[in-house]
Design a protein around this nucleic acid. Structure first.
Lengths: 219, 219
DNA sequence: CTGCGGTAACTTACCCGACGGTCATATCGC
DNA sequence: GCGATATGACCGTCGGGTAAGTTACCGCAG
């Protein structure tokens, strides 16, 4: 459709076209994962030839790195902003989620870009993502330390497990949001606030250690 | 080593060999994901040829389906057992986690088998996994309904988001466990109990809705 | 016991489609 | 005409899947 063969689409400035490719590639990488996304697919979706993508970004990894740099900068900046506003504990978590919903309302797939297990574990792109992931995780750790410190927990392993869990909670809400496109950022914020409040004040029972009998299960 | 060329390893009964292949394949699928796992890799790890794997399981999907059937049966059975013991709310969640730690102590990768996004979304194997995933999710929903019901929340979307979140929490603990092989099931159970107790009784502040200013962020 | 054919287990060597990546060529603005 | 921009056609590799051949075991006739 767009792009009759060799029409010479020079009218479109290169920078704009790069941004569009980046947007499409981010969506694809974030939706299907790095491994399952083909450069040809991205090019086709952008109405452009595969070769042109390579001339812009050098390689599949280069394209991926560009997407990650954009996504990582966006998210890390925003999370750092919330970190400075002085909230703490569970409230800080909710505020962080709210900020991310606001920023990602029209690019919900972006969160998954930084947490894609199919992405290569080394190479230049991996270093980019590792850097941003480290920043984000450091902020998460900060929040978790406050939260657990209030409960008298300072053990390193406890903290690292809780950080992992917090990131998993964010993952889950993002996944749910992607699966419910009609929900806007404000609705999500309210929902998350409501749910976390309900979780924090469990009305059912006290938490008790499970019976030791739980250990000898397994048929 | 084993298997000098065409040594005729008939001494090993077929059923045992199938079980061994299944064990190795489960580890591989659970660790690297369906897409990133090659049949040749599995065969090599089992000390046999790729063709033999095909003669046993028909296809890569067939092998995958066999792994999933085993894993799904194990997990669904165990979760259902806990569901019948009468606990509720957060306590039921902790008990479920404890049971899963006990069952999966020496096969920690198995949980990820059922939650692999790189697995094909249709085909016979997908139906197997969908069935078990549905059973597990139904039980999770049951628990979430109790928990949220106690807080006066019955909205369907709230429930579905909370189910997703709970599964994400399980994912996170399992991931952390895989990354910390020295931790045994009993230690994990204690840790999870401690962490969830800390989360549920937040000592820092009340949860409050974030300021509306949070909405107009994004540089 | 020995030789022999049948069969099940197993492997080597190959096919083929998909995908990352490259090159010669064609078009457009100036 | 020239340089920048863009492309269709092509290559190498990798991985799922298959065909044909090889080995080992078993029952049995002599």
């Amino acid at each position: 459709m767009a792009a009759r063969p060799n029409a010479g689409t020079k009218g479109v400035p290169r920078a704009d076209r790069e941004r569009e490719i980046l947007r499409i590639a981010s969506t694809a990488f974030g939706t299907d994962g790095f491994a399952a996304t083909g450069v040809a697919d991205v090019a086709h979706a952008a109405g452009i030839s595969k070769t042109l993508v390579y001339s812009y970004f050098g390689s599949k990894e280069g394209l991926h790195a560009a997407c990650l740099a954009e996504a990582g900068g966006l998210l890390a900046t925003e999370i750092e902003r919330v970190a400075r506003d002085g909230s703490a504990g569970v409230e800080r978590g909710v505020r962080t989620l709210a900020a991310m919903f606001a920023v990602l309302d029209d690019r919900r797939h972006v969160w998954r870009l930084l947490r894609d297990r199919t992405a290569p574990q080394d190479g230049p792109a991996a270093e980019v993502v590792a850097q941003y992931a480290a920043r984000i995780e450091a902020l998460a750790r900060e929040g978790v330390l406050e939260l657990l410190g209030g409960a008298g927990i300072t053990d390193d392993l406890d903290v690292s497990a809780m950080v992992r869990t917090w990131l998993g909670i964010v993952d889950s809400f993002m996944d749910w949001w992607v699966a419910h496109p009609d929900q806007d950022a404000a609705e999500m914020t309210q929902r998350v606030t409501r749910l976390i409040a309900a979780l924090v004040s469990d009305h059912t029972r006290r938490v008790a250690a499970p019976t030791p009998r739980e250990q000898d299960a397994a048929p």
